[in-house]
Amino acid sequence: MAVVDVLNSKGEKVSQVELSDEIFSVPVKPGVLHEVVTMQLASRRSGSASVKRRGDVAGSTKKLFRQKGTGRARRGNIKSPLLRGGGVVFGPSPKSYAYKVPKKVRRMALKMALSSKLQENELTVVDQLELDRIKTKAFAEVIRALNKSNVLLVTDAADEKLVLSSRNLPNVKVIKVEGLNVYDILKYRDIILLEPAVKAIEGRLSA
């Protein structure tokens, strides 16, 4: 098992913790990470692009002129796609771009993402991080003491003070273990795990 130092909010070493090889020492395959990240981004697409069809356009359904005898092309009503202001024939309509990859692949990709952070020395474990009140400056001082700037902070439970204190800081995100995902792990340069969150992650991914 890999052993990493546990720091306090001042960046001082207070103890050590063992990380499961089953989760934090997995061979990294870029193709698997790419597949899962692509799935996540596709699922985030709104898919709301839409046009008005012939039946959606406002206008009279009266025939513009008689069928024969004018020498002109046969014409229906003013909502024809051939006329300006008419409906669109093959335009986009609301759709979902979401798709799924197998659960085993998603779980394996999550392990690979965590392993890559450990291998690159971009994973830090902190014993606890508690704020007396909602204060961005106080949270920023903790991040500065840990010598981090682009950070994903993973907590074991919801902490409103941490979330609200961090939301005005650029390149910082606080997330619960339940919401941990491959895209966010790879997006941020450093990942900070609260010590209780380590056990929660191992319990989630080893099940």
Score class of each variant (00 low, 15 high):
V57K: 03
R74I: 14
K103T: 14
L153K: 04
V142Q: 11
T155Q: 04
K68A: 13
K100Q: 14
V105F: 02
A140T: 13
A98C: 11
S115H: 05
N168W: 00
V151P: 07
K173I: 01
P170W: 00
A145N: 15
L118K: 11
N171P: 04
Q128I: 05
S165T: 06
M108P: 04
R144K: 15
A157P: 03
A109T: 02
L83C: 02
V57G: 04
E160T: 09
R107T: 13
F139C: 02
G69N: 11
N121A: 13
Y99I: 05
E130P: 03
S149W: 01
K103I: 14
L164R: 15
R167L: 12
G87I: 08
A140D: 12
A73L: 01
K111R: 15
T136A: 13
F90R: 10
E130D: 15
F139L: 11
Q67Y: 00
G85E: 09
R107E: 14
R167D: 13
D132F: 06
L123W: 03
L153Y: 05
P92R: 12
A140F: 04
E130K: 13
G69T: 12
V88E: 03
D159W: 07
V125G: 05
I143T: 09
S149K: 15
P92H: 07
S165W: 00
K63E: 01
M108T: 12
D132R: 07
V101L: 14
G76C: 01
Q128T: 11
P170L: 03
A145M: 05
R54N: 09
R84C: 06
V126E: 10
A145T: 07
R74S: 09
E160M: 13
K111W: 08
G55T: 04
